[in-house]
Write a protein that binds this DNA or RNA. Structure first.
Lengths: 347, 347
DNA sequence: CTGTTAGCGCCTTCAT
DNA sequence: ATGAAGGCGCTAACAG
């Protein structure tokens, strides 16, 4: 007794059992006031007995609106994106939407098919973290439903987006390293084709300009796609005669790769990086991280989307850009070992 | 020009433009061989021009089968569950299903509503990580669709499930600590009402029995719900006159709390725990972790579910229980400081 | 090769 | 307070 037929009992079945028409069942389930108490009770009894559940697919077809929104992320295994998804979920639930989730696995060429699929499933809107720099396929989706971008800005698209303060955060964290007196700072970055990569490099650069220091081009490594690449790049830098005095990493995976390299090399270097991560505070490294609320990106994106759905009929609002603030957090070393540590006054 | 009407152009619209009936459009889109080449081309042209997408909702209603499966996890922010979700997604995609995801936030009382919602949306099956120990609401869902449990076994339910080798893993990791000569091992565990908590305690116990050591009851702390609680419990244990010689933690969050406590206390202790985690290898602690492939739990669960969907008509297979293997990994300390280290000498 | 009919389960509209 | 008709968009089954 499980999963017979196409999809269980229908309103007619309930109606037959309760000796009313399907229409009346519909009214009862909708809490329509114009139903007698006795009828209402009989219907509920029948619903219970049959384990009846209203068919949302049929409803959607009739009412026009699936009650679903689609989310496409690049890598759910990265805590950044799973938290983002959680934020989306939270707000979606609050407004009675469910979340259809797809993972592009950072393969930009897979993304169009994922998005088409979500549109086919009649999602009422989409939140997308674009995997690549081409966004033309999103224009196609926008013919059907509103699209909100997360973590990356639109490129040639007129749509809402939610960003982190990439430039500002990178500048501030770099400034911390510079203020500590480190001038030879290595930059370990993801591909510059990605918006975040470019912006964070810009912030790194700006911080240098502000104090009149010229970054050393030989210490700038971009295009690091994962922790392993970052580890190799760091080991390489450490092997140089003029090794850097500090490291700046543009995301959590790169930071982790760099940390692993330092550990393996049996050395230590002040490190600043975008994205906070678990156990950053117990590594015993002078660590400066750019922290922000990844859930909030998801929440804001969902709000923008749902707000747009609400104005579905009237004049759609102009496209908006929301920014989630960053905050620099300094994780110290246990004892006043070395370096100016945010924990104590001084400096 | 975005998201007008209920849901964009229909097959009739396409048909009108291509000067054929909706039926022919349907055939073309289905790749039905019985359509002339010229017609096919006209239809595709019209589809392109209108940006037409087939309405999956209407298809589902007609064909019976939404092409969606539902996944309910307790905490997507925990990498364990996000990886599980990724595994589900992977197999689901492979078989042409999409994934509707809900997060119970470990609130068992919210779970029934989430599940009902998914059933309403006509998911063809459900994969659930139950938040609590009561599973009666799942029986209700099973009247509609097959349900597969992940990470926890069914309780009074006849259904498939995918488990980790909780007992075995805990026993082996504990045995490592014992083999290293530590006999006073503290146990830091999640609530014993949870299956994993109970099983892992059982494993801990069994390892002791095998070497004829009696665990010290005073060193057993259960019911730790998060890293903060684990941290407090660990600090408390460390403050004792007869402090433990090693720690066993039943999951990643507890391990992290314990590690933070050790760090704050400025001390170090051999630690074994369930779940591997990022940077475990660079903490410079003698760390033994029970590692396993969380994605694989999701993949297996999805396979069991989809297999059951395939037998949808015939005789359903008897309920199965799949177990994902665990593997003990030893993260050493940098230099041959102490303990049997699986890693290479030096580096 | 192409079109017509009918109905998936539900709900809006219009009777009664 | 309740029911009957019709159709949301699509596609089997049956014409032609």
């Amino acid at each position: 007794m499980s999963a017979r037929r196409g999809s269980g009992p229908t309103m007619h079945d309930v109606g037959r059992l309760a000796e009313v028409s399907a229409m009346t069942v519909s009214r009862v389930l909708k809490n329509d006031p114009g139903v007698s108490e006795s009828t209402r009770e009989r219907v509920f009894a029948a619903v219970d007995r049959l384990g009846y559940r209203r068919n949302q697919t049929a409803r959607s077809l009739r009412l026009g609106g699936s009650g679903m929104i689609g989310l496409v992320v690049t890598n759910l295994a990265n805590p950044f994106y799973s938290r983002l998804a959680l934020g989306v979920q939270e707000v979606a639930t609050e407004y009675g939407f469910r979340m259809l989730l797809s993972n592009s696995a950072e393969q930009a060429d897979r993304e169009p098919a994922l998005i088409d699929g979500l549109v086919d499933h009649q999602v009422e809107g989409l939140i997308v973290v674009p995997a690549g720099s081409r966004q033309q396929h999103l224009a196609g989706a926008m013919r059907h439903v509103p699209v909100v971008l997360a973590a990356r800005p639109p490129a040639g698209l007129d749509t809402d987006c939610v960003l982190v303060e990439d430039f500002h955060g990178a500048r501030e964290a770099t400034a911390c390293l510079l203020a500590d007196g480190h001038t030879r700072i290595a930059f370990l970055g993801n591909p510059p084709a990605l918006y975040t990569g470019a912006e964070r490099l810009r912030g790194f650069w700006a911080a240098h300009e502000e104090v009149g220091v010229e970054p050393d081009h030989d210490l700038i490594r971009q295009g690091l796609v994962d922790a392993a690449a970052a580890e190799r790049a760091t080991l390489d830098l450490l092997a140089r005669a003029d090794r850097p005095a500090a490291l700046f990493c543009t995301n959590n995976r790169i930071s982790q790769g760099a940390i692993r390299a330092l550990y393996k090399a049996g050395t230590t270097l002040p490190l600043a990086g975008f994205d906070d991560f678990d156990l950053a505070d117990v590594l015993g490294l002078p660590l400066t991280v750019v922290s922000y609320d990844a859930d909030e990106i998801g929440r804001q994106a969902a709000r923008l989307l749902i707000d747009r759905l609400a104005h579905h009929d009237g004049v759609p609002p102009a496209s908006r850009r929301v920014t989630v603030p960053t905050r620099v957090v300094r994780h110290g070393v246990p004892d006043g070992a070395d370096g100016p540590d945010g924990a104590t006054p001084e400096a």
